[in-house]
């Protein structure tokens, strides 16, 4: 708004007054719209239902996982990081749940958010994680799912819709119940 205030004072500016006025109003409107946009994106945007955003993840083993290519399976998408204290608590549960369901058309994917290379591999080894995991470079998947904190676990049904979000650490039992429900639905 630097350039706009002074002009209308001057007599020569009288003719340009029309343009100046519209420019100021436009600027003000633009500013309000910008703040409005900020308000919109600031809201809770976690994907809690509906189509799960597609993503591509390169795993630590070098494989590429694309959500849309896992079609027809129940997908458990877990967001974690080595600096997340409560992720430690659910690591064993997640692996056990994976063992429970890995032969029943269920895919587990671990997304490692803003993490560091040697430590995350040590973590996977330490907890004996066997399902595919990969780094979320610059948090793209994290943002796409509107994750608000770690850990969060998304359960995606066979049609590719988010069926359930576990905010905070989850358990083998909790996760198992949800997966069974979806598998039951799928079968029936």
């Amino acid at each position: 708004m630097t350039g706009t205030g002074l002009t209308p004072t001057g007599a020569p500016a009288a003719k340009k007054g029309g343009i100046g006025r519209w420019a100021i109003l436009g600027l003000a409107a633009f500013f309000v719209l910008l703040l409005m946009y900020g308000l919109l994106i600031a809201g809770d945007k976690r994907v809690e239902a509906g189509a799960a955003p597609d993503f591509t993840l390169t795993t630590f083993d070098g494989d590429t996982i694309q959500l849309s290519e896992l079609g027809g399976q129940v997908v458990v998408l877990n967001f974690w990081s080595t600096w997340c204290v409560s992720c430690k608590g659910e690591a064993d549960d997640l692996e056990q749940a994976w063992q429970d369901f890995k032969d029943q058309g269920v895919a587990f994917v671990g997304v490692d958010y803003l993490d560091q290379e040697p430590l995350n591999l040590q973590w996977l080894e330490q907890y004996g994680i066997t399902y595919p995991n990969g780094p979320d470079i610059q948090g793209r998947i994290y943002n796409a799912y509107g994750v608000q904190g770690l850990p969060e676990t998304f359960v995606i049904d066979q049609q590719g819709n988010v069926a359930k979000v576990f905010v905070g650490p989850t358990t083998r039992a909790e996760l198992g119940a949800e997966i069974r429900k979806l598998l039951g639905d799928g079968a029936g």
Binding site: I24, A28, V32
Partner: peptide
């Protein structure tokens, strides 16, 4: 945000309306 928008456009409208009175020979 509503208040900001309201006060902004309200003031600008008032200012635009009174612009002729604010002319001063610079």
């Amino acid at each position: 945000l509503s208040f900001i928008a309201l006060s902004m456009f309200g003031f600008l409208a008032l200012l635009g309306w009174r612009l002729p009175d604010l002319r001063s020979s610079n």
